[in-house]
Design a protein around this nucleic acid. Sequence first.
RNA 1: GCCGGAGUAGCUCAGUGGCAGAGCAGCCGCCUUGUAAGCGGCAGGUCAGGGGUUCAAAUCCCCUCUCCGGCUCCA
Length: 645
Amino acid sequence: MSIDIKLPDGSIRNYDSPVTGYQIAESIGPRLLKDAICIEINNTFKDLSFSITENNTVRIVTNKDLDALHILRHSSAHILAQAVLNIYPDAQFGVGPSIENGFYYDFLFSNPIKESDLLNIELEMKKISKSSQSFIRSEISKKEAIKLFKNQNLKKELIESAETGEGVGNESVSLYTNNKFVDLCMGPHLPNTGLLKHFKLTKISGAYWRGDEANVQLQRIYGTSWFTKEDLNTYLTQQEEAEKRDHRKLGNELNLFTSSEELGSGNFLWKPKGAVLRDVIESYSKRAHLDNGYSLVNTPHIGKSVLWETSGHLEHYSENMYPPINHEENNETYYLKPMNCPFHILVYKSDLHSYKELPLRYFEFGSVYRYEKTGVLHGLLRLRGFTQDDAHIFCTKDQINDEVKTLLSFSVKLLGSYGLTEIEADLSTKPKKYIGSDSDWDNATSSLKQSLTELGVPYQIADGEGAFYGPKIDLHAKDAIGRRWQLSTIQIDFAQPDNFNIEFVNSDNKKEKPVMIHRALLGSVERFTAVLLEHYAGNLPGWLSPNQVDVLTIGNVEKYTDKIIRDLKGFRVTLDDRNIRLGEKIHNSEKSKTPIQIIVGEKDYENSTMAINIFDQDNNKDIEYKEGIKIVRKLLKEPEFNLNG
RNA sequence: GCCGGAGUAGCUCAGUGGCAGAGCAGCCGCCUUGUAAGCGGCAGGUCAGGGGUUCAAAUCCCCUCUCCGGCUCCA
């Protein structure tokens, strides 16, 4: 008996049945055998030792393959657990998958371990790696498995709960053994532990058992693992690069914003330079809105409780709302607003509307307050008080299609103006619990889908992730180092028009309910500022930079600098005419990340020239005056916003 | 909210039970300065806040606040 094995290049090799991945790799070449990690067969990955008994197509996965990294990291997690159990024999171990860039394993220790213990665990892992232990797969019955893991309650629970996954099948369970360490696992694994060479344990954290807040909290150890030293170093360098871009660090260094223990968590104070940056960001967006069919509205920060009862916020969202503000004398209760929509609806309701007016688009930079759990707060990215570039569009059902399409294109253009040009979308569809008719949902969802397709925005479907009152699109932007940030959200709402009973008069002179579209494009101004800072690593483009030009003098050229500052009126220019060396002035200017330095001395005054240093470019000396001013103005020009361009 | 780590001058940080420190920034002088930090001096502290242990606490213990890394959450 023999079997034919077809390889990805189309060639067919004949073997005596059964044949393993090892044997196939070996028959092709010693180099391949050395690099082989596992095999892919019928779209699943199997160990090299897996025995193939029938004709099939087989791919040898090598350490050059992206899929192999996943295997490496999964095996790294096993070795981590093995090391931990060697050092802490009474530790309980839970689950340990591979994740992006690395792996983790969850443990329950009798005494919590500390970050400083990681080094010791890492050394133990290195020992295991050096001894090159083979990973051997076996299957035993559930009953036997429970006996085997009699001292491991977490493992027992995994086996007993009988969910498939983590090596648990219906009747039997799959195990992997290396040396004396046994773990439940579907595999596949590296051929042996010796292939784990370039790794690092990175952090330690808490994690709920099986992801449920009600369960015991385990200690999770994270690590990263790679096939080559270069890859590991590249990753670690990238991490450092990301740290340098941290907006909290930059915000402090560049004097943009600050927090205070006395102020309380989740809110920031904007210092003069930061406030300028905010204002530039907001002004640009506001102009774009006003030029494209939006009306500006303005609404307060608090509203009476009846408003939040009508909107359903008190029923559905109260956990995230600040506690009520009671005015006992007047027997009134107010709430800080967690969203702007009820106020915009009140604006809508204050007039009678004709179908001829629709769509009506109300826009506001609305500050909202949400009582987020302390642990989730994160710089400007997750706050308790923040400002949405919020708008609510009131339109007819027939107008949804056009509105969404315009909106998407508006958002992509707007984000692009700030320099975020790589946009991807998530389309969230009908959840289990929802209101409104199925046909409304279907129509709205297909409108969203159609707009994404027509505008060529790549998207994924987030099945069942929509809000209970309507489907939505979230836009994500990729930054300069490839991170994905959620920014815009476009949400169709069938509920609020009902809750507030808002209407318009249609062409038959009948009252009809409009549909509402909620949308925030930058998301929150605070969060957006943080994303821009991280995207540009603090080196903001000229038009956004809080300070645009530093004029640095050599000697006394007051008349000349007066003229320069006059000719750059309207731009944000700072003069440094102190009696210190030029090198120091340049150093200070660079440190503050000012994009342009104009340097002038007496020679320049006499010749009517200037030197211009531009961020990230070669320096230019002896530029003729008018030419220099022209260059600077051009560099600082804000991008044009043209929706149809 | 939960687990773990941390909080020392405006900023970055050193200081593990025995006198509160450095660099930068600030202020005052000197240097007249042409492409990434001239020189000298002065000033700056509730060691996050409160309680405890100790002859003695920035340091050890407890509580609170704030921050950091995660988990959970983000209708």
